[in-house]
């Protein structure tokens, strides 16, 4: 029995030290040295205040801003409480919710049909992006609320479209927070 236990406990202890302490701490050291910004959460500061993270979506409800996708992270875009709707495809709450939302958004945005990503909740509830179609879909509303020419907004949105990596990997998208930051800058 003892000749079984000693190696078992010893191995558990040694492996804890190597893989549970040394490895993550070494990675933390390397990250802080080489990629300090990324390893600390890609935070964005404005006038010395952290306004969010480039990677984490946040709530926008005012007409003056582009809106993100619906979120089930807590009460919506809670950065310490990620979550999706997890509703099944035939769930009445899901289907009816999306249909009502489609009517509302369409009415707010010139009665056009709504891109599906703007109607559906992301997996994380923290999706920082919307599709380029969803950004263009909202332009008219934002232009009106801010009283700026639509042309300027078209240029701004176009400049914020991130294409597929190497033209192949991932999907084209627009980071809502970055777009809205640029929007504030343009207006001021």
């Amino acid at each position: 029995m003892l000749n079984l236990l000693r190696p078992a406990i010893g191995m558990a202890a040694v492996m804890t030290v190597i893989t549970g302490v040394a490895y993550p701490l070494a990675m933390t050291g390397i990250g802080q040295g080489l990629f300090a910004e990324e390893a600390n959460g890609s935070l964005i500061e404005k006038d010395g205040v952290v306004v969010g993270s480039r990677l984490i979506g946040q709530k926008f409800e005012s007409d003056r801003y582009f809106h993100p996708r619906p979120s089930y992270a807590g009460d919506g875009y809670e950065g310490d409480n990620s979550g999706g709707s997890n509703l099944g495809a035939t769930n009445r709450e899901l289907v009816n919710g999306i249909k009502v939302r489609a009517l509302d958004l369409s009415a707010e945005n010139g009665n056009r049909p709504v891109p599906i990503d703007l109607l559906t909740a992301s997996g994380s509830g923290l999706d920082p992006d919307i599709s380029p179609e969803s950004a263009r879909f909202q332009m008219e509303r934002v232009a009106k609320a801010r009283n700026i020419p639509l042309n300027d907004l078209e240029e701004l949105v176009a400049a914020h479209i991130e294409d597929r990596t190497f033209g192949l990997i991932g999907e084209p998208r627009v980071n809502v927070l970055m777009l809205n930051l640029a929007l504030d800058e343009m207006s001021s």
Binding site: T28, G52, F60, D80
Partner: peptide, 19 residues
């Protein structure tokens, strides 16, 4: 990490959103 995955022992960060 180079792509933006955090690796730190910091406390959770309080941010003030644009709104």
């Amino acid at each position: 990490m180079s792509q933006g995955v955090p690796q730190n022992l910091n406390s959770y960060v309080d941010a003030t959103t644009l709104e």
